[in-house]
Design a protein around this nucleic acid. Sequence first.
DNA 1: CGGGTAATTGAGCACTCTCAAGGACGGTGG
DNA 2: CCACCGTCCTTGAGAGTGCTCAATTACCCG
Lengths: 271, 271
Amino acid sequence: MTVSTSDEYRKLITPGSCVACHSHLCQLLPADRRDAAQGLLELNRGSRLEAVEGGGFPRLWNIVRGVAAITTLLADGRRQVIGLHYPGDTVWAPEPVGGTIAWLEAQTDCWICQIDTSAASHAASANEALQARLFTLVQRQLEEQAARIVTLGRLDGYERLCLYLGELASRIGRPMGREILISLPMSRADIGDYLGLNAETVSRILARIRKDGLVKFVSPTQMIIPDLARLEKAVPIATPGQRQAARLRNTATSGGARLATNGPARAGGAS
Amino acid sequence: MTVSTSDEYRKLITPGSCVACHSHLCQLLPADRRDAAQGLLELNRGSRLEAVEGGGFPRLWNIVRGVAAITTLLADGRRQVIGLHYPGDTVWAPEPVGGTIAWLEAQTDCWICQIDTSAASHAASANEALQARLFTLVQRQLEEQAARIVTLGRLDGYERLCLYLGELASRIGRPMGREILISLPMSRADIGDYLGLNAETVSRILARIRKDGLVKFVSPTQMIIPDLARLEKAVPIATPGQRQAARLRNTATSGGARLATNGPARAGGAS
DNA sequence: CGGGTAATTGAGCACTCTCAAGGACGGTGG
DNA sequence: CCACCGTCCTTGAGAGTGCTCAATTACCCG
């Protein structure tokens, strides 16, 4: 993990006019604690960020740039990516619990703004805007995790990968006319860790999805999605777009929370 | 869903001296909203409780008695149990999102205390104790869901069931000397929906666990765990030492933290 | 142009699913 | 009390999906 002090940031995070992110969550902290409570970190690909004990109040990670995974390990070395987060996301940092630990791991070079609300809590418990924002944020993260539980519990590999590609397309895809260009931020093995598969299976299923014409390969890490709707139709669930629209409807009333959101959605599958 | 008004409750929930639960979360609500914000519900086995829009503030379900599952029903009738909750648990009620709805479903007869913090939020945002309590509660739920993601993503059926039995033992098991007696609150099919398996597989694996001596059957829904420690040893939960070792293995290859091998064979799953 | 990592592909196997047939259990009515 | 019935549980056979192991092939970077 690298703490950067480059000029590029200094400009971004000028106190009082930080433009690093769109959430401006830090602005809701009490003015005298704003500096202590935030810090923009630069993480190189593969480096990690572990939450420390927050004393009961949340530590938040705001993904300013890049893609970062919340990851954990089993005793035997098996690995699972619990969540995958994109620019604009704010993550409730997982605290160490009973021998198990999860950390944030940069999948690409990242800028992460760390916000420690414990610094704010005592002075700002009356801060209703902050509280509302935190609730919205937590609600979203609970939903995303619930969706991932369904994905891992009930979707097969093909569906999981279609979901993943759709997620990438809507979060970091670059529209090119009617098509969408995506750069995969993770290796096959990492994708496998995210989707509960292994690297070879990911590779094989990707080949199958390509053969079905749902995606075109530019290189192993760059692909083009000719028709997002068709890709999403391969997954018998609400699409990220639909969910986002629904959430905008939902949150429109409550305190102007307007983070672009998504996350894998609901699943079909067997039973 | 049944709203009970039986005498048995009336005694329990006498305002100001409610002893229905141990959380006493409702006591943290402002006094004038306490009645509006809570209500003790009786759910018969199989009945449901749906959250409604909370305006950005959480609706909480406090499990006083019984076992309840947060469940989603897919368009084709298949189910996924997202979470399973026991007496003493407080659940952040899932709000309807994008056409997908999750609800609480009583696995056994339940008493549920519903707490609506939106009633409290405006008057009591300064209530630091309540806020701290909510954070703790959310933190725990996020952790539980993260653990379930790992379970579904990386544990095989045998491990998932051992975990489930251990969970039951520690939450609703009755100690009998050195052994623990548990009454399964769910059918094989429901357990399958919880663990991402199907009913037949659950039955088969249960038979295998029995043959391995980790559990003794009293009846199909009552079992005895002779040695909880031995059961838990079947699940690779990371101890600090093991985690350290695994991390060293994991980081040894490169800064990218790659992993040579993945989880156990897990197949099927859907379609 | 080498060295190393990442990705692909193949063969064989393990785990879980589907479909199907009995068996155990509890409730009901005769 | 017992036959009947529905539900849940068990067990079997066969098929499907994904994993392991292993060998290439492609790609990146110096």
